[in-house]
Amino acid sequence: MNKLICFSVIIFVRKYYIHIPILLIYSRLLFSAIILLLSLTQPQYYRVIISTLLVTGLITDVFDGIIARKLGVSTVKLRRLDSFIDQIFWLSALVGSYLICKEFFKENTLLLGVLLGAEALTYIVSYLKFKKEVATHAILSKVWTLTILATLVQIINTCDSSWLFATCFYVGIITRIEIIAILIIIEKWENDVPSLYHAILIRRGKPIKRNKLFNG
Rank of each mutant, 00 (worst) to 15 (best):
K3R: 09
F12D: 13
V13Y: 14
K15E: 03
Y16D: 08
H19G: 01
I25F: 12
Y26H: 08
R28D: 02
L30A: 15
I34G: 03
L36S: 13
L37K: 11
L40E: 12
T41E: 10
P43N: 05
Q44R: 11
Y45K: 11
Y46K: 03
R47L: 15
I50F: 01
T52A: 15
L53S: 00
V55K: 04
G57W: 02
G57N: 01
G57S: 06
D64H: 15
D64M: 12
D64S: 14
I66M: 13
R69D: 15
L71Q: 15
V76A: 12
R79F: 03
R79I: 12
S83L: 04
F84L: 10
W90V: 05
L91C: 11
L91S: 12
L94F: 11
V95F: 15
V95Y: 08
Y98L: 03
L99N: 11
C101K: 13
K102R: 06
K102E: 04
F104C: 05
K106F: 14
K106D: 11
L110T: 12
L111R: 06
G113I: 11
L116R: 01
G117M: 07
A118V: 00
A120V: 01
L121M: 14
Y127D: 06
Y127K: 14
L128A: 08
F130C: 04
K132C: 02
K132P: 02
E133K: 03
T136G: 01
H137M: 12
H137G: 08
K142Y: 03
V143E: 03
W144K: 03
T145H: 02
I148C: 05
Q154F: 06
Q154C: 10
I155C: 07
W163K: 15
T167C: 11
C168R: 00
Y170S: 10
V171Y: 07
I173Y: 08
T175E: 11
I177E: 02
I177F: 10
E178S: 08
A181H: 08
I182M: 05
I182K: 00
L183N: 02
I184Q: 04
I185C: 07
K188N: 10
E190S: 00
E190V: 01
D192V: 00
P194L: 08
H198W: 03
A199V: 01
A199N: 02
I200V: 12
L201V: 04
I202V: 09
R203C: 09
G205S: 13
K206L: 14
I208N: 01
K209W: 09
R210Q: 08
R210I: 06
K212E: 07
L213S: 09
G216S: 14
